[in-house]
Design a protein around this nucleic acid. Sequence first.
DNA 1: GCTTGACCTCAACTTAACTTGAGCTTGTAA
DNA 2: TTACAAGCTCAAGTTAAGTTGAGGTCAAGC
Lengths: 157, 157
Amino acid sequence: MKSSDILTIGEVSNRTGASVSAIRFYEDKGLLTPHRNAGGQRRYVRADIRRLSFILIAQQLGFSLKEIRTQLASLPEGRTPTKADWMRISRRFRRILDDRITVMSRLRDHLDGCIGCGCLSLRSCALYNPDDRAEDAGPGARYLLDGPPTKRRGIWS
Amino acid sequence: MKSSDILTIGEVSNRTGASVSAIRFYEDKGLLTPHRNAGGQRRYVRADIRRLSFILIAQQLGFSLKEIRTQLASLPEGRTPTKADWMRISRRFRRILDDRITVMSRLRDHLDGCIGCGCLSLRSCALYNPDDRAEDAGPGARYLLDGPPTKRRGIWS
DNA sequence: GCTTGACCTCAACTTAACTTGAGCTTGTAA
DNA sequence: TTACAAGCTCAAGTTAAGTTGAGGTCAAGC
């Protein structure tokens, strides 16, 4: 390595593209816990950067900081996470992505039929599932997957 | 039709599942423009409900109110939109969904490799494209599609 | 004709994910 | 050893998409 293995927040910002304020914000939210030097400034080591990189990638994938924090919580406490630790998280995220892709594909396939048809009768429309909207379980419309939860009516009935 | 063709906001809320406050909010944002009766109360006709239904479906599909408003702006001003009008919008949304599904699939396929590998070197990682994050062009990581925009460095270089 | 539930407006609050600014301290290069 | 860039904390502002509440009006049934 050319540069030191211990970086300041500004250096981390340059390497990752995350803003300094965002990096501090993630720490506030408990996603990062860098050490401090004698003067109270943050100092980042490899494992910290790796966590941050993971956060940024997971955000690209559409995960919230809350979901990301949950996943990061599964990493070991006492030691630096290994490749196997990260792979476990990767596999979990992949399964979630698989599901989201499946849902989006089905929605897409219903789109013409639903928006094009005369009814737009939401409660009986495969594109629209109000029961999902209450939860924060990611992209909704679960019943395209699971089947309708209750009986429903058209708009004009 | 059993009930009247002119509905109050409460009736619309019941039919569609959208809350009364949300329906008023959409009007505030210029997405709906119902008539008022003599007493100043909102009255909704078929075409209004159809717009609202479209809004709710598009939200399920992950579109923002801003994007939805843009699409609705393409509907005719003077007359009630026809099936053909709605189908045009549907086709546009389907193309966008197609793109998003493509992007997500590629992200998923890179996930293990990127999170699993030792580098996590964001700026050279196919999963991470900071250049996209500035724009608000929907799910980012465009350069999985388009190829890298600039030269990049690894975290530790 | 009165009561009561549904409606009305407007302002303020909520959460997520940050950014911006003020005022102060640390670190480093000349 | 001093200048000044970079860091620090804490408070407040920002956008999206609504919700909640206060205080007042409308409409429909008895």
